[in-house]
């Protein structure tokens, strides 16, 4: 077995250093070494999107990266998007529009939704469906997730406009 390696990652705004086996996935390091269990593992082969995080501003599947590849990166997980007690509009919208049932895909969906709206402030339902095609939900049939993302987009645009 290879020696552990030290990895420095900026996680949700705070610098963290972990010592991991080189073969350890970023997803496992986030869950086990950083203790952030909101990042879920649904397939571990890059299809389901439950492990979606933002890495240096890009959406990535953390199960498809090794932790050592994230050395020096900035990552945002589901735990890092609320402003203290104030939920991110995407989080509020998922609850209000029943965009979640079991909640297992939800962290990845919320991060993917934020990414979509960051690139397209006013997405149509069809655009949302196409853009979020990399995330799987087994409970909702997607319709209410689409409604949630649309509703959040409206709030985010309004907030962005007033800022």
């Amino acid at each position: 077995m290879a020696e552990n390696m030290s990895v420095v990652i900026n996680v949700n705004g705070a610098g963290r250093e972990v010592s991991v086996e080189p073969r350890k996935t970023l997803a496992d390091a986030i869950r086990e070494d950083l203790g952030l269990t909101g990042t879920h593992l649904g397939c571990e082969h890059g299809v389901c999107g439950a492990c979606t995080i933002l890495l240096d501003g890009e959406v990535v599947r953390s199960c498809l990266m090794l932790a050592v590849q994230a050395d020096g990166a900035e990552i945002t997980t589901i735990e890092g998007i609320a402003d203290g007690d104030a939920l991110h509009p995407m989080q509020s919208a998922f609850s209000e529009y029943h965009g979640l049932q079991c909640g297992f895909c939800t962290p990845g969906m919320i991060l993917a939704g934020i990414d979509v709206v960051s690139r397209n402030p006013d997405p149509s339902p069809q655009e949302i469906r196409e853009e979020m095609g990399g995330n799987i939900c087994r409970c909702t049939g997607y319709q209410k997730i689409v409604e949630s993302v649309q509703a959040a987009a409206a709030v985010m645009s309004a907030e962005g406009g007033s800022a």
Binding site: G38, H40, G103, T106
Partner: peptide, 19 residues
């Protein structure tokens, strides 16, 4: 009625078996 299940889940604070 709003789901009482949602609050932890949307914050990534759900507690699933792997957690």
């Amino acid at each position: 009625a709003p789901r009482r299940e949602d609050a932890p889940l949307i914050r990534g604070r759900g507690r699933y078996i792997a957690d």
